[in-house]
Design a protein around this nucleic acid. Structure first.
Lengths: 357, 357
DNA sequence: ATGAAAGCGCTAACAC
DNA sequence: GTGTTAGCGCTTTCAT
């Protein structure tokens, strides 16, 4: 029945004011001493004492209070369609590197690929007054991008373009990537090459398909009926489904260029199901060079994008955007990919004999 | 030279007060109307008008302000040693599911595995006044855990135990997992079985090694010199290095149980380098069943942990901990794993002939 | 059922 | 170089 002071549960944290009292100065002095930018204005000996006392008291600044006052949260959010896709992890670690150096924390949010849910989660983030947004989710025409524009929310896109170029983006050169892939296959002797495309609603799906067509034309392989089949989403399962369609309609194909690695792995599944072999019956090229594709069976030939650099560049662009008041600096950064040749591609078989279906 | 009101840059957001003025009531009424918990106390027609006006004005509550006032940020952070390890992604998506249903946002932070950096980043999070922490980083004796205790920071561990059991944890049954793996190999006819262990400083490394030894003993295979070699970290590269050591010291091994999938894949690399084959020359069992190990060459036999459930359970435990004021409810949840047999395990070769070194 | 008033912890003019 | 003051946007007693 006795009210005690024992800190049984959640201890109140130490405030700036308490530090000030302990030092014997005013709170604002402590604030100035603690902030590197204003520190120079305080007497050196006072700074020293403040730092000392703050440390000994275990003072931890309340960023919510500071943020309320300054209007900046020093929080940046990254929206990814699927956190388990390691391509995004690599991009994010590149971004984190830059961002944390500037005192920003990065919130990674797995938002799936339903625009409505994406919008809902973004609104939550806006309520938290995040300072900026990195979008790995962009559709070619994306309502979320429109939302960011309306809200004057600093944002940059990674890996995917938005059609109307309303936001800066850092992407890999999809046209070049497809060029690399097709040239490689042609070099090996392939003529009947098909494309396992990504969703047309996403820039990578669209651009890589276009790039594929162009690369085929450049190699004199353009035709009235270019073998292309698009997957509904960038997943291994949908890759398998689309591959079955592709091979069903074009049984003579000897090589497939996939719009990304997950689709390529789905193609592996489909080919295995058919009783065919890769690269014996059909060669496959992926895109992205995500972790572990070097160890799958067979090791995947793929177009490596500069994940890390994409992340870093995006962070730089965003930082710039968050600092500057000029809304004008819209720019795209397009990084060159590189072909990594492994064992999923080989010259086409001379006899063309394959297990029947 | 004319000062205008044109919202050229960052528009000020709409405040509660502005909504109140528009409706013609006091701010506190709007606050009550907007909060589902207190809504019942406001006249229904007023509630309706508030909701309407708030929506039309595009009102977005300032969670920093609310948090400052209430002392709760509704933010939970998850610390992972490596965001590109898909095992954690799966756990996180399980946790997100629960957390977001309760109005919490999940910040995923890639903190690496250096304790000092982990502590530094955690302090930043504390400054943000996060309400809780999910730790996937725990060492067997972890300074970060001590820190959480000191700070009265609600936290739960996933995937890894902390030795002194100061915090609740949700983990897979490592002993059982090893049992499953060893029994399977013994069943296939293996006798010379080695263990590719994880770091001893991490509970999974320690417990799985112990589990391995026990399982061997249970199968009458205990000996004075049980073949075990520990990797320095849970990475594919270190797995390869440790495998070379293991096979160097125990050339007669016909099977290896790895402490996790990444190590197992490293073992693949080492075996390939030796010119040996799996499972022909040596069978390999992994642990975790992370994405894509079904498609590597050969498809990996592995112990599947219930990632998703681990995440969900952890979130539940944390939620409970953040609500309750009783610091007493320390508990561990141990989930049973399941053996997934694929093609990396087979009966040992009768002749035992292998390529020389 | 609603309004008034206070205050969460911090920063930034402004004074001196 | 330091103190004073006000206020960021919200919630929550306490009145009425």
């Amino acid at each position: 029945l006795v009210t005690t002071n024992r800190s049984t549960s959640k201890a109140r944290s130490v405030t700036l004011k308490q530090v000030a009292q302990a030092v014997g100065v005013h709170a604002s002095t402590v604030s100035r001493a603690l902030n590197p930018a204003t520190r120079s204005v305080v007497a050196p000996e006072v700074v020293e004492r403040v730092l000392e006392v703050a440390a000994s008291l275990g003072y931890s600044p309340n960023l919510m209070a500071a943020g309320l006052r300054t209007g900046r949260s020093h929080l940046v959010a990254a929206l990814v369609p699927n956190i388990a896709n390691t391509v995004f992890s690599l991009i994010l670690s590149g971004a984190t590197e830059r961002l944390s150096a500037e005192g920003y924390s990065l919130v990674v949010v797995d938002v799936g690929d339903t625009p409505s849910r994406q919008l809902q989660l973004t609104k939550q983030l806006v309520s938290r007054r995040i300072d900026g947004l990195i979008l790995a989710t962009a559709q070619r025409d994306d309502p979320l991008v429109a939302f960011c524009i309306e809200e004057h929310l600093p944002a940059v896109l990674v890996n995917r373009f938005e059609e109307r170029r309303r936001l800066s983006a850092v992407v890999s050169d999809d046209t070049l990537g497809m060029q690399l892939a097709v040239d490689h296959l042609v070099h090996l002797g392939h003529v009947q090459i098909g494309h396992l495309a990504g969703p047309e609603s996403i820039s990578t799906g669209h651009l890589r398909r276009k790039g594929f067509n162009e690369a085929m034309a450049l190699n004199g392989l353009a035709g009235p009926d270019i073998p292309v089949e698009a997957a509904v989403s960038y997943s291994r399962d949908e890759g398998a489904v689309a591959t079955e369609r592709l091979l069903g309609r074009h049984p003579g194909l000897t090589a497939i260029v996939a719009a990304n690695d997950l689709l390529a792995l789905g193609a592996y599944d489909a080919i295995r199901k058919l009783g065919w072999s890769c690269p014996g019956d059909v060669s496959i090229v992926g895109h992205n060079d995500m972790p572990l594709v070097d160890i799958v069976s067979p090791p995947l030939t793929t177009v490596r994008i500069s994940h890390h650099e994409i992340g870093r560049e995006a962070a730089d662009l965003l930082l710039q955007r968050m600092r500057g008041d000029s809304d004008t600096s819209m720019r795209n950064v397009i990084l060159a990919p590189e072909l990594i040749v492994r064992a999923s591609t080989a010259a086409p078989r001379a006899d063309k004999k394959r297990p029947g279906r």
